[in-house]
C-alpha cells in the first residue's frame, strides 16, 4: 500500500514494544496449539494408550500457563488503537 511508503521506517521504542506485544499476542495461540498437540507424540510407538493422570496434569499446567500469559499480554495490550502499519519494525 502506498501510504506505508511515506511513513518512517523505524518507530519510537514505546511503539516498538507495543508492536512486539502484538506479535506475542499473535504467537501465543500458535504456541498453545503446539503444546496441546504435543501429547500426540508421546507414548510407545504403535500404541495409542496414554496415562490419564500424567496427561491431565500436563494439559492443565499448560492450560494455566497459557491463561497467565494471555492475561499478562491482555493487560498490556491496548486494543482500542488502530494499527494500520503492523508489519513494521
Amino acid at each position: 500500500m502506498g501510504e506505508v511508503m511515506n511513513k518512517p521506517l523505524y518507530v519510537a521504542p514505546q511503539s516498538y514494544r507495543q508492536r512486539r506485544l502484538r506479535d506475542a499476542a499473535r504467537l501465543l495461540p500458535i504456541l498453545a496449539v503446539f503444546l496441546i498437540i504435543l501429547p500426540m507424540l508421546w507414548g510407545e510407538a504403535g500404541s495409542d494408550l496414554r496415562s490419564s493422570g500424567q496427561d491431565a496434569i500436563y494439559l492443565f499446567v499448560v492450560w494455566l500457563c497459557v491463561i497467565i500469559a494471555a492475561a499478562v499480554l491482555a493487560r498490556r495490550l491496548t486494543p482500542g488503537d488502530t494499527p494500520a502499519d503492523e508489519d513494521k519494525g
Partner: peptide, 24 residues
Amino acid sequence: SGLEYMTIYLGPTVVFVGWWWVLR
C-alpha cells in the same frame, strides 16, 4: 473416552488466547 472431553474446551481457549487474530 478419557481426556478427550478436554478438546471441547481447549479449542475455545486457543481462539480466545489468539483474540488478536480473529475475535478482535
